[in-house]
Amino acid sequence: MKAITLTLAALLASGGAYAQEVNVIGFSGVFADNYQKFIIEPFEAANPGITVNYQPSKNSAETLALLTRQAANPTIDVALLDIAVAIKANEAGLFSQLDEAGVPNIAQAPDWARVDEDRSVAFSQDNLAILYNTETVTEPPTSWNDLADPKYKGRIAAKLGDTRGVILIPILTKMAGGNYKDSIEPAIEAMNAFGPNVLTWEPAPDCYAVVQSGEVDLSICWNGRAQYLHDTQGGTIGVAAPVEGSIGQTSAISLVEGSPDAEAAKKFIDYALGAEAQGTFAEKSFYGPVNTTVELAPEVAQRIYGGPEAQAAQMTLDWQWVSGVYSQWIQRINREVIAFN
């Protein structure tokens, strides 16, 4: 057994002196397919010495649990996480700091995207949107306020006890003329205004299927997957991007502290943050790019952010700040909105 291992090691050492490996853990499903096709494959083509293995994970919480378990002896080099979870991970010191020398493309990321002193960098934004059933809803909603229209009584699915709610709060606060850092009272009020229309706060199996099946008319969901389902499931799901603008569920890329192959990993991160990767991925997956130099074609921008008005109103969050109130906001949504509706 040992002999075989040694032989193998020797073979690897001689045959592929520069064979490098980057292990990436990230989201599963369509995201994983797109990421493989439009980021990993081009990267591998450009860097023949490096192999990238993508390991899909059920959700960010699971990824975090895995990284925590492996903290002393990681096998993973790069982690793709929900940004709020990435910030959590940084509290536990799970990721290494990046710099412009090793990863030049972080210079192209906007300031808000570089969190925890460049330990995690946002790379995509999936907008919160209103989904509607194109068969039952003849007049698609255009505003977040439409959620409170009495004609949707018992016809809305709104899973708000997670990042969806955390993102909706700043949107609704801003609509009421407030600032989420001062008070989120207006958002709670606005949620309670449409609360009575909500059929379920826990759509099952998910917020897309209940629209597809006609169980509800409207659902508050992520744009990227909705666009994909619109294209693949016969157009039953329509996506409305409210004119007041939206905020994206933000994913960040991080280099795992103690990564077995940090050099290759940095190369990959740099590619993933670069304009080419960002542009292609946005176009194919309808996730907003996080690179100031990317120019999207108008039809692509339309499907990611909505019309010009919505595009102009697109917001970003101070995630570092929000992560400090994340659980508190969810608690308030649970206790002050869901529990009463």
């Binding site: 899973k159 006890g161 706060w201 826990e202 099952a204 869901i338 529990a339």
Partner: peptide
């Protein structure tokens, strides 16, 4: 409780 409660059953 989560699925049947529509999120309302804590």
């Amino acid at each position: 409780p989560r699925l049947m409660g529509g999120g309302r059953v804590f």
